[in-house]
Design a protein around this nucleic acid. Sequence first.
DNA 1: CCTTGTGTTCTCCG
DNA 2: CCGGAGAACACAAG
Length: 286
Amino acid sequence: MPELPEVETICRDLRKKIINKKIVSISVKKKNLIKQSVTGFKKKLVGNKIISIDRRGKLIIINLSTGNYLLIHLKMTGQLIYQQKDNIIAGGHGLPRPEQGLPSRFSHIIFIFSDKSQLFFNDIRQFGYMQIVDKEELDLVIDNYGIEPGLKNFTLDNFNNVLKNRKTSIKALLLNQKVIAGIGNIYADEICHLSSVRPMRRINTLTNDEKKKLWKYSTTVINNAIKKRGTTFSDYVDADGHSGSYVGHLKVFGKQGSHCTSCSKGVIKKIRHAGRGTHYCPNCQK
DNA sequence: CCTTGTGTTCTCCG
DNA sequence: CCGGAGAACACAAG
């Protein structure tokens, strides 16, 4: 599940691989993954060079030489895997991993560069998408994203401001991309755990100390996860097809039934909250 | 009344 | 069933 740290890892990888490369052709095998006609999509991409690669929340923004932008959202199970021409061996069935061969049956869109290297957009569940926008449309899209751990706007003051007058739960707010961008289900649970706050706590009941911890651990968790190149729980891999290792640092996500390693007294509980599987320690999270 | 905020459910797919 | 996140919808308060 790519959240901010996983998407950031992919962006950093891709910058080293495809900047200045020219797209010579594109294969679209599933047209429902692009938000426009296949012909329009190809017309706007083929012949372009990749100028730069950016990210806002979980959205990848690729700046093209024509001045348009290719937006890529990986949603649940999307992958972007880059392969030099010598490594490309058609896979067909197994998992969408390079060692299984690419393209696989989940390689729905493939970019081919002038040096014959390729970028595979794989997606098992097909929730992800690609879309080409101009600068004006890009600005509108970006405006819909809230403050973001790692950006200058993620100050304690701004964090307290977005929490002000909200009646929802802290987890629902952490997941709301319009308010706070980049945090998904795994890191929301981890941030709440390290802050000793239950995910379903109403925001108006949080103490100043708890809010400060939530703000601090939002940045800590996200930054540590970036250092570990993300969390691979099921399908996430980086641009080389490798897993992230933050999974070894998870305290609550997927730990239901285990003893809490923070307080060593509680047993991690899994419930459903804010429409998501939610994990917490009933002993040390209040 | 209408607008705004918020919460809930549905949708895509394997 | 699960789930990222937008859409559609329901409801409440100003």
